[in-house]
């Protein structure tokens, strides 16, 4: 293990290390802690310049109540859910199939198609912007959740296929050969043998894509406008315009917008990190 385990160091350094951890963490998260503190302060603290003192009264419930009951925020949150969940299902579904095809079968253009997915996934969004917006307009899907979902599924399929294909490559191939010898149909091999083995990959990919799509801002402002279809990342800017200079409310709104992926991360931490770091170890 590197660096040398702390248990083997002198007692003094061990204590220093234990003391240093929380201090480092507070510095690291300081900008965020500040916003969390802002979000429970009353408006009067800001007008009187009491930015960093203790809150004169605890207004957490009132501030968050405002966000939930007196703004479009719940609407935006719901839109985000209706954009994110279908995208996760669609992208993971398509890439399970594509990953299976690229991971199991040997055919001439295999690597070429695989690299097409990989390369497409790295492309800057702006090269797609004008045509995709135009296409969405032509399909009559501009400013709808469906329009956004369809694009997201297509784009995320690139990354998901890269992930799935590499995962399937690492599965024991003799299993599939054995099934073929038994005369099992290929689609049954996919459904009954490979898919159950892919559960960890599906879990990891689902949390990752959930976070990516929830946090998307660029496509949200290119393909939608207004509270009927915009997700929360785009909605927060309208929210902030509505409550201009009401820092306690803007802070509460930001925290609400950021929370779902954070909750997802803490609930599914193992899968999340496994997904992010796939390939980081040989």
């Amino acid at each position: 293990m590197f660096p040398r385990p702390i248990e083997k160091s002198p007692r003094a350094w061990q204590l220093t290390y234990q003391g240093l951890l929380p201090i480092a963490l507070i510095f690291w998260l300081a900008p965020l802690i500040a916003v969390a503190v802002f979000s429970i302060k009353p408006a009067v603290d800001f007008t009187q310049g009491n930015y960093w003192g203790l809150p004169s009264t605890f207004e957490g419930a009132a501030n968050y109540g405002q966000v939930f009951f007196n703004s479009d925020m719940p609407r935006y949150l719901l839109n985000s859910v209706f954009i994110t969940v279908p995208t996760v299902i669609g992208a993971v579904g398509l890439s399970c199939m594509a990953g299976f095809a690229l991971g199991i079968y040997r055919f001439k253009s295999n690597l070429l198609i695989f690299f097409m997915f990989v390369a497409g996934n790295f492309v800057p969004f702006q090269i797609l912007m004008v045509p995709v917006r135009d296409l969405t307009l032509d399909l009559g899907l501009y400013n709808t959740k469906t329009g956004l979902v369809l694009f997201h599924i297509a784009f995320q399929t690139g990354f998901c296929t890269l992930f799935m294909r590499n995962f399937i490559r690492a599965l024991p191939f003799p299993l599939i050969e054995a099934a073929r010898v038994e005369g099992i149909a290929e689609w049954k091999i996919f459904w009954y043998i490979v898919l159950p083995l892919m559960k960890p990959a599906i879990a990891a990919l689902s949390v990752l894509i959930f976070t990516f799509i929830w946090n998307d801002y660029f496509w949200a402002i290119v393909l939608t406008q207004g509270p009927e279809s915009q997700p929360v990342t785009a909605g927060i800017t309208s929210f902030n315009a509505q409550f201009r200079a009401a820092y306690h409310l803007m802070s509460a709104g930001s925290i609400v917008a950021a929370l779902p992926p954070v909750a997802m991360f803490f609930l599914m931490q193992k899968h999340f990190i496994a997904g992010l770091t796939l390939g980081a170890v040989k």
Binding site: L94, M97, I104, Y105, F117, L150, A154, T157, T161
Partner: peptide, 20 residues
């Protein structure tokens, strides 16, 4: 089989990423 499994992903990807 691989082409059947690839078809939806490839079509989506061509339509929304490669062609644009």
């Amino acid at each position: 089989t691989p082409w059947l499994f690839l078809a939806p992903a490839i079509l989506f990807f061509l339509f929304y990423v490669i062609f644009p």
